[in-house]
Simulated assay, not measured.
Amino acid sequence: MMGLLANEWIKIFKRKATYILIGITLLLVLGTAIALYFFDKPDTNSENGAWKVTLTEENKNYADDEMMKPYIAENQYRIDHNLPPNATYNVWDFMTDAVSFISFVALFTIIIAAGIIANEFSWGTIKLLLIRPINRVKILLSKYITVLLFALFMISILFVSSFLFGSIFFGFEGTQPYLAYVNGEIVERNIIIQLLIEYGLESVGLLMFTTLAFMISAAFRNSSLAIGLAIFFLLSGNIITGIIGAYYDWAKYLIFANINLSQYINGSSLIDGMTMTFSVIMLAIYFFIFMVIAFVAFVKRDVSA
Rank of each mutant, 00 (worst) to 15 (best):
A87N: 13
I271E: 01
Y181L: 01
W123A: 06
I102S: 04
E66L: 11
D93L: 04
E198S: 13
D43T: 14
T56P: 03
F150K: 01
L235H: 00
I271L: 15
N258Q: 12
I102Q: 06
P85V: 04
L5Y: 12
I271H: 01
I139G: 09
F104P: 01
L141Y: 09
L5M: 09
N183E: 11
I243G: 06
I293P: 05
K69A: 05
I243S: 05
L229E: 02
T210S: 15
D249A: 14
V187W: 00
G205V: 01
T54G: 08
N119T: 13
L164V: 15
G237Q: 04
G115P: 11
A305H: 08
N222H: 08
Y286Q: 08
I197R: 02
A50N: 13
I102Y: 00
F209V: 08
G171E: 10
I243L: 12
S161I: 07
G166M: 06
S46N: 14
A50V: 04
M282D: 07
A230E: 02
S269Q: 08
T109P: 10
T109K: 05
N190M: 03
A257Y: 00
E120M: 09
G49S: 08
D80G: 10
M274K: 05
S142H: 06
K69V: 11
Q176W: 00
A118I: 06
A251M: 08
L206N: 04
E173G: 10
I131V: 14
L21V: 02
N48P: 04
A230H: 03
